[in-house]
Amino acid sequence: MLGYFFKRVLLLIPKLLIISILIFIGLSFVPGDPIDHLIPPDQRAKLSPVQLETLRESLGLNEKLPVRYLRWISGVLKGDFGYSMVSGASIRVMIARRLPATLELAFFGLVIANILGLTLGYISSIKHNSIIDYTNTTLGIIGTSVPEFFLGLCCIAIFSLHLGWLPTGGRVAVGKETFFDRIEYLVLPVLCLAIGYIATLMRYTRGSMLDVLNKDYIKAARSKGISEFRVNCNHGLRNALIPVMIILVNRIPVLVSGAVIIENIFNYPGMGRMILDAISCSDIPVVMFSTMVIATMILVSSLLVDMLAALLDPRIRFN
């Protein structure tokens, strides 16, 4: 089993290389000249084609695609992720600043979504077809169907502008830096990020639980005389979690990259906003690298899914 996972981890390397080539080729087809975004239009008009050409040459834009790729990938392997074409800042520095913010958002989003989603789903399945269940499922449908941007705007309008309880956006007030100073900035984005998740997770947990509670081994467990709570938790939830956890872990990368909208609405300085800014400026090195970060996350979480499945389900572990 360990050998299998070691092999899987090793396989990540060729997979990532292939992905990087595909992204590189894809981005080379993006229309528009990066130079256009580099120089203000009025100044660009004054530049001669020769000057533009020199600029391109100096930026390495004129080389053939494979050469450019090899130069980029060897840099990445050495830990040199390149520089933003727009701000000239080191991408490594940008990521080092942005990624923790996004991870903080995603982490709290996940924790809250997990606790609430699983608990509500569990209650819904135990109190199947009761008023609590109907309320939960109705809220669940609303939660999955209301788009994040609308929810975010509503939250800002109500809690920030109208009630004035929480800041409209940002990550931390000027001059403060402890985590506790950041909490009030986290509440609304985390909430908006988590709601869709809570709803999805609740519905999956409920469905999976209802499926498991009808199984023969639940009746057999009851016939042992153990308490209803233990039947539901040790046998019900334990089995219901297998598919739910797999869905959950599979969606972690979506949570990280999906913060794009939320981060923009709340003006939150994370990866999502960086990606959006980079795309709108054709800042190819930044887009390239952040896409790679997301691709890595997807690959790692799909590996995690398999490990988790093996951990939770002996039938997979022993085959």
Binding site: Y217, K219, A220, S223, K224, G225, E228, R238, N239
Partner: peptide, 28 residues
């Protein structure tokens, strides 16, 4: 149903075997 009294009978005094042994054991 599910009272402490009946649970202390179930399994201890009166136990059951079910039809389908393949699905009556918890797989995990």
């Amino acid at each position: 149903r599910d009272s402490k009294e009946i649970r202390s009978i179930r399994g201890k005094h009166i136990s059951m075997i079910f039809q389908d042994p393949l699905s009556s054991l918890d797989p995990v």
